[in-house]
Amino acid sequence: MNANSNTYTFIYASILVIVAAATLAVTALVLKKSQEKNIEIEKKLNILASVGEDAGLSEAKRKKDFVEETYDTYIVEDFIVDGAGNRQEGDAFNINMAEEYHKIKAIVASKDEDKKESLRSQLRLPVFVYKEDNGALKYIIPVRGVGLWGPLWGYLSLNDDFNTIYGAVFGHKGETPGLGAEISDKAFAKQFTGKKIFSGETLTSIRVMKGGAPKNNPHAVDAVSGGTITSDGVAAMLKDCLEQYQAFFIKMKEEFKILN
């Protein structure tokens, strides 16, 4: 057959594309399971890191087994709440925070109270419950926002007074290395421990302050140097997400008061 004829070219292209597509489909199918597992393990590890239970990881022989085991031991419950603080049915672990973040953005941007209310009722926010060896419960919530170059995320764990932060962990997609990227450093996250998100009955969230937070201020931490927009992004992420959990926190605080 003439290698320069149209028919030959069409047939050649078609076969090539079919072969390439088949190769890719097979690869994707074969590897899908371990890829999904990796994502699941990473999420579990982040949740554990927010309560400091990732310490044994470097000594663990098999990272996956360590994460699975620790997660099953310490994370005793997970559930979903909506923006009004009511529990919802569903699988909390597999909630996609990126989608929830779109709703949160719409709520924050909207000025109409009724619309905010209806949007809030559509939120599905996960809460993970961590039980310490001594029986104390910590509540872990995911947060999500945007930095300078892309999305930011993190997990915040709260004591059962729903005010004091027990631990935090942050991640990012592509902040500047050495500058904004430092938010995923343990040293940055460590500052959050012991900070308070409520001042009296109002939610103050945590400010991330350029030039350093004043000592003894329970509502502020130091920003990362050279990463102003990323730091502001962290502050906005905390404020926007905590606001959505506020109703849930207040409900739980009431319960906490009654119990004590």
Partner: peptide, 13 residues
């Protein structure tokens, strides 16, 4: 390249 990318995602996440 996509095959390499997929393998990395599965075994060197």
């Amino acid at each position: 390249v996509i095959v390499v990318d997929q393998i990395l995602q599965a075994y060197a996440y």
